[in-house]
Nucleic acid binder design. Structure first.
Lengths: 211, 211
DNA sequence: TTACATACCAAGCGCTTGCTTGGTAGTGTA
DNA sequence: TACACTACCAAGCAAGCGCTTGGTATGTAA
């Protein structure tokens, strides 16, 4: 049996939510991500988080020095997790257009899929971090952004779109991040079709029907 | 002289910021919009707002019953103001593509121009409103959205783009609202060029060079 | 057995918060 | 002169907040 989990519902699947593991620390992070998304950082009290995890509010501070450190940890974990996932998804393709589609699909999946709470926190609770913490997280995020810029620059050099790749990335960020307000994975629109539609905003109709 | 404003710096220009007038109530709203954008609704205290206006914190409640009512008023005012402005901008054009450009330009101007504080609040502090207030504001917002949907539907019927007009509107909303995080009106990129670039995401390159 | 670390509880401190209260000064108007 | 209305002040209350404190139970290893 090894290290069995006591009083669990028996499900072996899904040891992580939002990219967090099942340690006490991970459980706090996952609950925090959920609550931060639902109510915002400021309206979420440490008592709320503690209640969700099933411990006393004071015990939170055994794992994190301050409430802001919880937010920072959520942000760092989700950036790390999704950078790695996006890198892997991209590596499966050769053609820049297909790489772009992998990036778009991966980013949407991060935003509306299993890391949606934490991704939402990344966008909406960003300013709750101190300036120092913002810079540190931004530095981490740069690796992620470089994946995008490399791919977009390739496409641009190949003449697949005309406009500035930097601005284009910002327009894409807008389109994808806004999906968290309206897109539901089990609705009428398939996530792949949405990704295709966004890819078309970049390279036009020439990307259709390939593969 | 009529109704002169006492103790003003003498400037006749710009009687409104964020679409709010210069009444005591309007001054509270304008200060609140600025602070809500800068620090978020929850981190802005009524004492902060009062200090900005130059009155005591308790006096705020002579003008608004609760702090949430201030947020709601900011939201309502900015929706009303920009709906009217957008309608006027649209009415100056006949061709759907030009109407679309007027909408895009108007929305960006609202987001990064004189109503930027209030527009930012609209996006980021939305969830701080009670569900009831959210519905009421949403109903107001629907008039605004209808301007977009009518224009996009026309373009769609004329075959100027293929994809679903409803989804297209959501992608545009993402692109425009995200500009508040990166676009600066006096930077290298002209606001008109940005608008054109976004229009191109919708109707492709066929919109270029007209007018 | 001793020693130390992890994970937690129960209680509560000090501060900030939204909001209330009771009152005052200035203005309009009949 | 009397009344009403708007705009505000000064003081402070009750509740909720992040975080601290001092302690206990359990596991591990010398």
């Amino acid at each position: 049996m090894g290290k069995s989990m006591s009083q669990d519902s028996g499900a072996v699947q899904a040891p992580m939510v939002n990219g967090m593991d099942d340690s006490p620390r991970g459980r706090v992070l996952s609950a925090a991500a959920r609550l931060f998304r639902e109510k915002g950082f400021d309206r979420t009290t440490v008592r709320d988080i503690a209640r969700e995890v099933g411990i006393q509010s004071g015990s939170i501070f055994h794992h994190f020095p301050t409430k802001e450190d919880i937010l920072y940890a959520v942000v760092v974990e989700v950036i790390r997790f999704n950078t790695e996932r996006l890198r892997a998804a991209m590596a499966e393709h050769e053609a820049p257009v297909e790489k772009l589609r992998a990036l778009v699909l991966g980013e949407i999946e991060a935003i509306v899929g299993d890391t949606r709470e934490a991704m939402s926190v990344l966008v909406y609770e960003w300013r709750c971090l101190s300036p120092d913490r913002q810079s540190e997280a931004l530095a981490l995020r740069e690796v992620y952004e470089q994946l995008w810029l490399d791919t977009l620059s390739s496409l641009h050099e190949q003449g697949l779109f005309r406009d500035d790749p930097f601005i284009m990335r910002r327009l894409i960020t807008g389109m994808t991040s806004w999906t968290n307000t309206w897109f539901h994975p089990d609705g009428n629109l398939a996530i792949g079709d949405l990704a295709d539609m966004i890819v078309r905003r970049v390279v036009g109709e020439q990307a259709d029907g390939n593969g």
